[in-house]
C-alpha cells in the first residue's frame, strides 16, 4: 500500500520535473518575443545576452579552478586574447569561421604557455602568478606597438557575419548565444564525465592518490588549463561581437575578478554554479547601477557581497543547494534505517 503511494508520488514528481523543463525550454525559445512586449524589453534582452557570455567564461574558468583546483585570477587575459584575435583576423579579411578557429588555436597556445609553468605552482602562488599574467597581458595590450589594439581608445567591432547571416540585433545574438551557452555546458558535462575529466578532478582532490592511480598530474593540469582557456577565449570572442567595442580597459583585472566571483558565488565545482553566479552577479550589478550609478558604490557593494559570501557560504549557491539536498537524502536514509553503517 505504502509502496504504491510512493510510486505515485515519485511519478508525480517526474511529471512536475518534465513539465518544468518543457516550460523552461519554451520560455527560453520565446524570450526575445516576450521581451518585445515588455516596456524595457530591449534592455533585458541585452543584459541576458551578457549573462550568456559571462556564463561561458565562468564555466570555462570553473573547469580549471573549480574542477581541477588550478586557481586563476587572470582570466581576463584569455578573454581578451580571444576577443582581439578574432577581431583582428576578421578585420584583416579572414572569413569569420576560420578566424574563430585560428583565434582559438592562438588562445590554446597561450594557455599552454601559461599552463606548463603553472602546473608546478601551489595554490597561493598560482593565484599570484595568474594575477601577474593578467597584468602583463593587459599592459601589453594597452601599450601595443603599431597600434594593434588601437590603444585605450579601443576598437569598434563590426557585426558578426556567419554563414551569410548578419548578427546585428540583440534577438539574433540571443539565439546564437543561447545555443553556444548550451553547447558549452554540454561540453563541460561531457568533459567531466570522461576519463580525461575524471583525471583532472582527481588531481584537485589528491595529487598523491592521483599519481598512484597512474595519472601524470602535471599533464592533466595542463589539459584542464588549456581547455579552460579556450572556453574563456571563446567567450571573449562572443563578447566582442556583443559589445561591438573592445578596448584594453574592458579587459582589465576587474573582469578576472568578476569571472572568479561569478564562479564562486554560484558554486565552484558544480555544473550550473557559474551560470547561477553569472545571473546573480549581473542582476546585482545592473540593479546597483540603476540605483547608484557605476563607480565606487556599485563596486563596493559587489565586493562586500563577495566577501560575505566567502565568509558564510564559500561553496556558493549551487554548492549550498546540493549540500542541503544531500543532507536531506542522508536523513531520509537514516530514518528508513538499516543502511549498514553500524558494524
Amino acid at each position: 500500500m505504502e509502496e504504491r503511494s510512493k510510486e505515485r508520488s515519485s511519478s508525480r514528481k517526474n511529471i512536475y520535473r518534465i513539465s518544468g523543463i518543457v516550460l523552461a525550454v519554451l520560455i527560453a525559445l520565446l524570450l526575445p518575443v516576450i521581451c518585445g512586449f515588455l516596456e524595457s524589453g530591449a534592455y533585458y534582452l541585452n543584459v541576458i545576452n551578457y549573462i550568456f557570455v559571462y556564463t561561458i567564461a565562468s564555466t570555462g574558468l570553473n573547469v580549471m579552478t573549480g574542477y581541477s583546483g588550478q586557481i586563476n585570477l587572470g582570466g581576463a587575459a584569455y578573454f581578451s586574447v580571444g576577443a582581439y584575435a578574432v577581431v583582428i583576423l576578421c578585420n584583416a579579411g579572414v572569413p569569420t569561421l576560420l578566424s574563430v578557429v585560428l583565434a582559438m588555436l592562438v588562445v590554446a597556445f597561450f594557455g599552454f604557455l601559461t599552463a606548463v609553468p603553472a602546473a608546478k605552482l601551489k595554490y597561493h602562488f598560482l593565484a599570484l602568478a595568474t594575477t601577474a599574467v593578467g597584468e602583463v597581458v593587459n599592459n601589453l595590450l594597452t601599450v601595443s606597438p603599431g597600434g594593434i589594439t588601437n590603444d585605450t581608445h579601443g576598437m569598434f567591432v563590426k557585426a558578426l557575419v556567419l554563414f551569410g547571416f548578419k548578427f546585428k540585433s540583440d534577438a539574433s545574438l540571443y539565439y546564437l548565444l543561447l545555443i553556444m551557452t548550451a553547447l558549452c555546458l554540454l561540453f563541460t558535462w561531457a568533459f567531466l564525465h570522461s576519463r580525461t575529466g575524471r583525471a583532472c578532478v582527481a588531481t584537485r582532490d589528491s595529487v598523491d592518490a592521483a599519481g598512484s592511480c597512474g595519472i601524470d598530474v602535471r599533464q592533466y593540469k595542463i589539459i584542464a588549463t588549456v581547455v579552460s582557456c579556450v572556453m574563456i577565449g571563446f567567450a571573449g570572442f562572443l563578447f566582442a561581437y556583443l559589445n561591438r567595442y573592445i578596448s584594453p580597459d574592458t579587459f582589465a583585472a576587474g573582469k578576472s575578478t568578476m569571472f572568479m566571483s561569478m564562479m564562486m558565488l554560484g558554486g565552484s565545482g558544480t555544473l550550473f554554479g557559474p551560470f547561477l553566479g553569472a545571473v546573480l552577479i549581473t542582476l546585482i550589478m545592473e540593479l546597483l547601477r540603476g540605483i547608484q550609478g557605476s563607480g565606487p558604490y556599485m563596486q563596493l557593494t559587489y565586493g562586500f557581497i563577495l566577501l560575505i559570501e566567502m565568509m558564510f557560504m564559500p561553496q556558493g549557491v549551487s554548492g549550498a543547494i546540493s549540500d542541503y539536498k544531500y543532507k536531506k537524502d542522508r536523513r531520509r536514509m537514516e530514518a528508513a534505517g538499516g543502511d549498514g553503517k553500524d558494524a
Partner: peptide, 18 residues
Amino acid sequence: KLFSGMSVIDNVLVGMHT
C-alpha cells in the same frame, strides 16, 4: 587519500585510469 569531492564510484573509475 580519497578523492573526497567525487562520488564513490568515480573514485573507483579513476583507479581504472591506466
